[in-house]
Write a protein that binds this DNA or RNA. Sequence first.
RNA 1: GUGGCCAUAGCUUAGUGGUAAAGCUCCGCUCUGUGGAAGCGGCUACGAGGGUUCGAUUCCCUUUGGCCACCCCA
Length: 430
Amino acid sequence: MKAKKKKGKFLLQSPKGMHDVLPDEQPYWEKIKKATEKISESYGFSRIDTPAMENAEIFERTGEETDLIEKQMYYVKTKGKERNLVLRPEGTAPTMRSFLQHGFSRLGKPLKLYYFGPMFRYEQPQAGRFRQFHQIGFEIFASEDDPIFDAYAVLATVRLIEELKIKNLIVQINSIGCKQCRQAYIKKLKEYYGNKKDKICKNCQRRLAARPLRLLDCKDEKCQPFKSEAPVILDKLCNGCKNHFKAVLEYLDELAMPYILNHYLVRGLDYYNRTVFEVFSEQSKDIGALASGGRYDNLSEMMGGKKIFATGGSIGVERIIETMKSFSITGALKPKSEVFLVYIGNEAKKKSLAIFEKLRAAGVRISESFGKESLKAQLKDADKEQVKLSLIFGQREVFEESIIVRDMKTGAQETILLEKIAEEVKKRIK
RNA sequence: GUGGCCAUAGCUUAGUGGUAAAGCUCCGCUCUGUGGAAGCGGCUACGAGGGUUCGAUUCCCUUUGGCCACCCCA
């Protein structure tokens, strides 16, 4: 048996569902970061960064029944006393925690915050679905449940995605009411499905008891006919919720923002109430929603704080990148070098780093292939980088204290004095 | 957590029970102080562990990772 040398290779890989962002992919991240800054600024969102870990209670209190909390959280073992640290599975609860902790709750006017960071969920990875992924979130905290903020959150979320040139966005929106009218609706729903138990799929039979709203989301063919006959939540909303939702839609209408009412749309987290929405792209439906969000007026109290009215949306960065790729949208452009420094021989090499530094300090975008000895190879690299000029510095030039300036397009060369190099180069690249 | 498909060089892929081929990339040579073309040459791989076998990259088991469906979600 051979194969001794490969021992340990299995360790040389990133954890399941977690990926390196290699240099090739960075331009996408650059572009998204820039777009996020731009949109946040113009819509008045201030950046907030919270730790990657939180006390588990932060999340446990906000969604006992949900998969995310029940089985997808990473609990962290430490040597210290913290027994219950988790890697954050989402960004809304931490933002609310920070908000309450720092006494921001004396709201003069609504506070708008945004975050951009990694989230962690233990689940089976698939395309567009990772164990570590990144979200951009917009959150609006207010002292009133004004529906204009729901529209505002949808607006900012959609505009950020559009800023990245992703087309054919579909906004799906629904209202899941408040505690009271939702309970009433669930009761109706249960009644409706109660006598059809043996005709619906196994999953739905199970869900009927635990999370009846999810029945509306079922894709099983057996369940479809019952779904279409099922009571619709919008018809059962209390007046407060009905008016609120109506107002949200009116704001969207005024914006001429297209949306689809989706009676089946339900969010996975327990803290949502009233408005919920998801954003899809026609091009990348298969990787799921690009963004989602909604109102969460109950979260602050669930966490032990005072009542805060809040609404927001979050965007899946990796899914955005996938979609950009499927549209052949490129990432941010790197600034190109204008000048390439080539050395020949050791004497020249010794001085070339200093020459490089002098030009860089003078504001010239210069690049090089230090470490490659052959002139050919260096010029080849210069060609690949599509620079305007190459500076060729060899033995002869060392003695003459000069350097050759080569125009890469015409091939014309000229020898200039080393001391004048910065000004001469600048003159030529204009 | 359940089920299915997959795994060969840096990348994309061929192929075989007798240790493997090609394209792109990379490095070099033709051209010893001059790039963009062409030709030639070179580096680098059967994910890991175990089993069957004279011999396994190939067959079997386990494991790891990727993808897909369920579940759920960004």
